[in-house]
């Protein structure tokens, strides 16, 4: 494993956390995204998707197997480096985006330093 990845853990399928540098990274292209004490979504590209483009109507009329685009939108979050779709949220239009991951970095560092946790294959393991 490359030295720069030894302090890196996977937080989602696409989001890595460099614990030492306190930075978010894209898991696919490795791009440094931004400060890990901030909402990682602030570092991504965002698109307001009409849900009918993903769930097309199968019949005519108001109830047609497709979401009502006035009630809900698909908010797509892309890595600005490689364009992978890192996250999606189905939200009513205008609803605040969710700050979904707020890892306590100080606690994590402390547990790693104390040997309570170790990193193996980019994941946290509790030491026996």
């Amino acid at each position: 494993m490359a030295a720069e990845q030894q302090n890196r853990i996977r937080v989602t399928e696409y989001l890595d956390l460099d614990i030492e540098k306190e930075k978010w990274h894209c898991n696919r292209c490795g791009k440094e995204l931004g400060a890990a004490r901030e909402n990682y979504k602030r570092c991504l590209l965002i698109h307001d998707r009409d849900p009918r483009e993903i769930h097309p109507p199968l019949v005519s009329g108001e109830y047609n197997f497709s979401p009502d685009p006035l009630w809900v939108r698909i908010v797509e979050f892309y890595c600005p480096g490689c364009g992978v779709q890192m996250e999606t949220e189905y939200l009513p239009p205008g609803h605040p985006l969710t700050w979904d991951i707020e890892i306590d970095l100080d606690s994590l560092k402390k547990r790693l330093q104390s040997g309570e946790y170790k990193i193996r294959k980019q994941r946290l393991e509790v030491s026996e």
Binding site: E13, H55, Y63, P67, M86, Y90
Partner: peptide
């Protein structure tokens, strides 16, 4: 679940389709 897909997808996936009566 007729107008809005229920639940949220995960890590960049899409939700399932709504259902009419």
């Amino acid at each position: 679940g007729s107008k809005v897909p229920l639940g949220q997808p995960m890590f960049g996936g899409y939700a399932s389709s709504p259902i009419p009566g």
